[in-house]
């Protein structure tokens, strides 16, 4: 029994140590700014199409599915409110994070994993560079900056998608009422929650991706395994954390 839980506990301990070193590293030199901007481009600009598409269709689907229920209660005018609150609080941050986990956590794990198995990470240490500062820190900074921005865009595009379905397509409510309801229903609590979540997710997504990449062993097969593990673990953490953060905000 003890042996069964020893492995996961050791892995978690290693993860916490890496997280600690990377976080401490944020306040220390050296800073590899070109690497940070490259990662920002990869994560932010690279994920933009998939994040916008996901955001748009999640808003549209939400409006579509809610239309029947709201018609039953004669509350179709509330469609903007429902779409906006659900997207900003929950769906926007979670779906964006899951997309970035699938795209970038896996990318980080495979890139760093390949570097590990071809001894590039050992070479880096041997040639005077700390891999945590050179590889992990730029990815952490870039993800923590870009994920909240991507989430804001996904939220907006999602609300727009909801409007397309609710107004031009189904005629559930007027344009003015939809946008007015969407805007007025959002409180500071929602916005804070909607921005805090992607920030926390970003830290987890980047660190999980880097962690599994850095501990890759066993050649190309190991790289594949590390990539899969990174996506699975990062995605599970996203859904667990959204519940925990949501729980804190609901009781506030």
């Amino acid at each position: 029994m003890l042996d069964l839980i020893k492995g996961p506990i050791l892995t978690f301990q290693e993860f916490v140590l890496l997280a600690g070193r990377a976080t401490r590293g944020i306040f220390r030199k050296p800073y590899y700014w070109p690497d940070v901007f490259t990662q920002m481009d990869l994560i932010g600009i690279g994920s933009l199409p998939v994040v916008l598409l996901t955001g748009f269709f999640s808003g549209a689907v939400m409006a579509l599915q809610m239309s029947r229920a709201l018609q039953t209660y004669g509350a179709t005018s509330q469609i903007g409110q429902i779409v906006a609150i659900t997207l900003v609080r929950e769906m926007g941050p979670v779906l964006t994070a899951l997309m970035v986990a699938g795209r970038n956590s896996s990318g980080m794990a495979s890139e760093l994993g390949s570097m590990k198995v071809t001894e590039q990470i050992d070479a880096m240490r041997a040639l005077g560079t700390d891999p945590v500062m050179k590889l992990v820190k730029p990815r952490l900074i870039a993800t923590a900056t870009m994920l909240p921005l991507l989430t804001i865009l996904a939220d907006f595009v999602g609300i727009f998608g909801g409007w397309i379905v609710a107004c031009p397509l189904l005629g559930l409510t007027s344009d003015a009422q939809y946008w007015n309801n969407s805007w007025r229903s959002l409180e500071y609590n929602d916005i804070t929650q909607g921005l805090l979540k992607p920030f926390v997710f970003a830290i987890v997504l980047s660190l999980v991706g880097c962690f599994y990449g850095m501990k890759t062993t066993g050649g190309t097969q190991g790289v594949g395994l590390a990539t899969t593990q990174a996506v699975v673990v990062a995605s599970v953490w996203v859904v667990v954390l959204t519940f925990l953060i949501g729980r804190i905000f609901v009781s506030m």
Binding site: V117, T118, E119, Q120, D122, A123, M124, A126
Partner: peptide
């Protein structure tokens, strides 16, 4: 040092 796999970036 020269690594077994070369270790070139």
């Amino acid at each position: 040092v020269l690594f077994q796999e070369g270790g070139l970036f």
